[in-house]
Design a protein around this nucleic acid. Structure first.
Length: 247
DNA sequence: AATAGGAACAACCGCGATTGG
DNA sequence: ACCAATCGCGGTTGTTCCTAT
């Protein structure tokens, strides 16, 4: 089968995003969600391919992204998880709230790998091309039984560290009003979420389809990704069928 | 002060997986 | 069951910043 290109390349912008583009993307997703990445650029007026929009949102604009340096605890967790999971960056990122797979991947290649392997053998700095060639080294692939046990272990450790203060998570509020992202109270995680107060509602998208829309201003956590919400719901003992019938 | 090269980070690309008609 | 469209992941590359010489 011949794969269709991800998007029509002609006329589409590439390279670094401008603040104006960021604003367009954020405001569109706030209003309509991101049910269809391919259609999103057209509907939002962005001259980008859907893939680029998705990446920008996930790696940079998502409000739950934790900015700043990685803590020693996070770095230890990455090393621990990498030993078990290998280069499964998204799986590692899933265990580190607020961190993206891309960010973790970069940190691994720039900091942590060196920490494990020791400093470069030669005192002379290596060229970029030499570094890139060395990155092609193969990595051990663990079994799934190893993965499942270690993930639970590592995530529990990270969660425990995250919960050591009264703040469960902090949010990057650079792009949003301060009222939008108050710190989550401990009770949010321990009490069942009331059906009447669910943080989402249905909204008609520009294309006429019905989409789920989060009420950004009224909830402590907005669209951090369906995986997060589903995981949270399941952890709380919820039933996915019950959840889906509610939409 | 100039500059070469490394570090860090953002973004792109290709491909496998998943989904829906 | 099949196929096309789309998503999501991991690898790679490009760009900017920083630092040593």
């Amino acid at each position: 089968m011949v794969r269709a290109p991800c998007c029509e390349k002609t006329g589409l912008k590439k390279g670094p995003w401008t603040p104006e583009e960021d604003e367009l993307l954020v405001s569109y997703i706030q209003k309509h969600g991101h049910a269809n990445w391919r259609a999103l650029p057209k509907l939002s007026g962005l001259l980008r391919c859907g893939k680029s929009c998705r990446l920008r949102w996930i790696n940079y604009l998502r409000p739950d992204i934790k900015r700043g340096n990685f803590t020693p605890e996070e770095e230890d967790a990455i090393i621990e998880l990498h030993q078990k999971l290998g280069n499964r960056w998204s799986a590692i990122a899933a265990q580190l709230p607020g961190r993206t797979d891309n960010e973790i991947k970069n940190v691994w290649h720039t900091h942590l790998k060196k920490r494990l392997n020791g400093p470069a053998p030669s005192p002379k700095r290596r060229s970029s091309s030499a570094r890139r060639k060395s990155q092609a080294a193969t990595l051990p692939q663990p079994s799934w039984s190893e993965i499942s046990s270690s993930v639970t272990e590592a995530s529990t450790a990270v969660m425990a560290r995250e919960n050591s203060s009264s703040e469960v998570m902090s949010w990057n509020t650079d792009n949003f009003s301060s009222e939008s992202f108050s710190i989550i109270d401990e009770s949010f995680w321990t009490e069942p979420y009331p059906t009447s107060g669910r943080p989402w509602n249905s909204a008609a998208a520009v294309d006429g389809s019905e989409q789920m829309q989060f009420a950004f201003a009224d909830i402590p956590v907005n669209d951090a990704g369906m995986d997060f919400w589903c995981d949270l719901f399941l952890r709380a003992g919820g039933d996915m069928l019950e959840l889906s019938s509610d939409f």
